[in-house]
C-alpha cells in the first residue's frame, strides 16, 4: 500500500458480562471480539462477513468508538482514537460515519427527514439557514431522492428510500470512512442491487472507504476489494476478494462460499456436511499467518 491507511485496527478486544450477580455468583465473560486487526486504505472497501453473533457489528461499533473497546488500538489517518474522550472524539466523528442495518429504526420517526439529514451539519456547525437547506437538497439528489421529500416524515418512505436517507445523512459531512452494518440485509432483493450500486457510485465520487458488514458473500464479491471472515469474535481469514473466492483456506470460509445460492435450477447442490461451529471455535491465542501475499489465515486449521 502506497498511501497510509484511513483506518488501522490492532488487537481490538470487547467482552461483555463478567463481575458478579447480586448473589455473588460469577457472570460468564463473553468475548464478543477478540484480537481483531485490519487496515483499510483510502477509498477501499473491506468486506466483513460471518454468521450472526460472530462479532461483526460489535467490531463496526468498536472501530467508531460508539462502544468503547476493552483493549487494542484504532487509528484514523494516524491518530489514535482509543485515548480520546467523548469531546476529543467529536472532531473525528465528522470523518467517520455509520449506516445501520434496519432502515426503519434508524430514522427518528418524529423528525422530518430533511432535518434529519442536515443534523450532522448543524451539530458540527458546518452549515445553517438557507445554505443548509441547499446542501440537504444536494445530498438528496446525490442519493437519488427528490429534494421535495425533505419535509416528510420517515413513515412515508419505503425501506429502500429510507436507506437512501440514512446514506445521505452519513455522507453529509463528507467523511473519509463509513461503517456499513448490513445495510442491505433488511431490503428487498430488487432494491439491494440499487443500494449496492449507490454505495459504489458514492465511493467513486467521494473517495469513501467502507467497512462493509454482511452475512453472506454474494454481494460482498461485487463491492469489496478485500474480505475478512469472522467466526466467534476472531478474524479467521482475510484476503483480496478474488483470492478468497479462488482459494479459501479456512473451513469456515469454504462453508460460507458453498452456501452462496446459484441461480440455476438445473444445478444440483452438492451435499456437504454442515459446518460445526462448536467444534471449530478459533483458539484465543492462535496467530494469523500469511499463506500467500496479503492472504491471512488463522493458524489452527490451515488446509
Amino acid at each position: 500500500m502506497t498511501q497510509p491507511p484511513v483506518i488501522e485496527v490492532n488487537g481490538l478486544m470487547r467482552s461483555y458480562g463478567g463481575g458478579r450477580t447480586l448473589l455473588g455468583r460469577e457472570k460468564p465473560v463473553i468475548h464478543a471480539i477478540n484480537d481483531v486487526s485490519f487496515q483499510i486504505a483510502e477509498g477501499e472497501t473491506l468486506g466483513l462477513v460471518g454468521e450472526s453473533g460472530s462479532g461483526k457489528s460489535t467490531t463496526g461499533r468498536a472501530v467508531l468508538h460508539l462502544e468503547r473497546p476493552d483493549a487494542g488500538s484504532v487509528r484514523f489517518r494516524g491518530t489514535e482514537l482509543s485515548t480520546l474522550g467523548q469531546q476529543g472524539l467529536k472532531p473525528y466523528r465528522k470523518h467517520m460515519q455509520m449506516i445501520f442495518q434496519d432502515p426503519y429504526s434508524a430514522l427518528n420517526p418524529r423528525m422530518k427527514v430533511g432535518r434529519f439529514v442536515g443534523e450532522p451539519l448543524v451539530v458540527h456547525g458546518v452549515d445553517s439557514g438557507s445554505s443548509l437547506q441547499d446542501r440537504v437538497a444536494e445530498l438528496f439528489k446525490l442519493v437519488g431522492l427528490d429534494p421535495s421529500f425533505m419535509s416528510r416524515y420517515p413513515h412515508e418512505f419505503s425501506g429502500g428510500q429510507r436507506q437512501r436517507i440514512n446514506i445521505a445523512r452519513a455522507i453529509a459531512l463528507q467523511p473519509g470512512f463509513i461503517v456499513a452494518d448490513e445495510p442491505i440485509t433488511a431490503l428487498d432483493v430488487s432494491i439491494q442491487a440499487q443500494i449496492v450500486n449507490l454505495f459504489q457510485d458514492l465511493q467513486d465520487q467521494l473517495g469513501l472507504a467502507y467497512l462493509f458488514i454482511a452475512h453472506d458473500l454474494s454481494m460482498v464479491r461485487y463491492l469489496c476489494q478485500r474480505v475478512a471472515v469472522m467466526l466467534r469474535g476472531r478474524i479467521v481469514e482475510m484476503a483480496p476478494t478474488e483470492q478468497i473466492f479462488a482459494d479459501p483456506r479456512h473451513p469456515y470460509t469454504r462453508s460460507l462460499l458453498a452456501a452462496i445460492p446459484v441461480p440455476d435450477p438445473d444445478r444440483v447442490r452438492p451435499d456437504r456436511p454442515p459446518f460445526d461451529v462448536a467444534a471449530n471455535v478459533p483458539p484465543r491465542e492462535a496467530p494469523l499467518i500469511e499463506v500467500s501475499p496479503d492472504h491471512f489465515v488463522l493458524d489452527h486449521q490451515v488446509q
Binding site: K94, F100, A106
Partner: peptide, 26 residues
C-alpha cells in the same frame, strides 16, 4: 437502543441534544 439514537451519537451529537431532540419528541 434504537438505531437513530446510535446514529445521533455517531455524528457526535451531545447528550442534551439526543435527550431533547431525539428522545423527548418520541
Amino acid at each position: 437502543e434504537r438505531e437513530f439514537v446510535q446514529s445521533a451519537r455517531a455524528i457526535g451529537a451531545s447528550t442534551a441534544r439526543i435527550m431533547f431532540l431525539h428522545i423527548l419528541p418520541n
